[in-house]
Amino acid sequence: MEPKKPKNVFQQGAISSEFIGNSIAKHQTKTSIGAHNIFLGQVRADVIDNKTVAAIEYTAYDDMANAKFHEIRESAFEKFDLTCMHIYHSLGTVKAGEICLFVFVSSPRRKVVFKALEFIVEAIKADVPVFGKEIFEDETHQWKVNS
């Protein structure tokens, strides 16, 4: 399958489990697929200096981010034998415990999807201009840094 033009990667707010479930269901008609792999990024209630993270507020340089998501997509299709691939990332406020990143890869064979998913998630973390503001329960904040 040819790599497609990027869909809109960004969603306002958290990514619901219903949305994730529906995405899986939509692939039942694609019967050349033998293996899916899914990464779900969840907002962690980190405790920093006795203050607990209640939510992360995401902003992005949208145009550049979409271009980077597209590049990551293209290079993933080039490197791995994928049938399809979907990326969704939240913008705006996502509460602790909610999902902010959903990456879904599918292939005829399992070994491919393990490698592809790690490649894609690491590339997103390193190359896409998204910025997370960690909001504490007392409404102060600090800026998240990916480790």
């Binding site: 902010c100 201009p129 998240k144």
Partner: peptide
């Protein structure tokens, strides 16, 4: 113009952006 550049890159009049450390995901 949506590509990371270094300090000696010539300014060509495109859009410039100052980007703090990325923290997506």
């Amino acid at each position: 113009n949506q590509e990371l550049v270094s300090e000696d890159t010539k300014i060509t009049g495109e859009t410039i952006a100052l980007l703090p450390p990325f923290s997506g995901g």
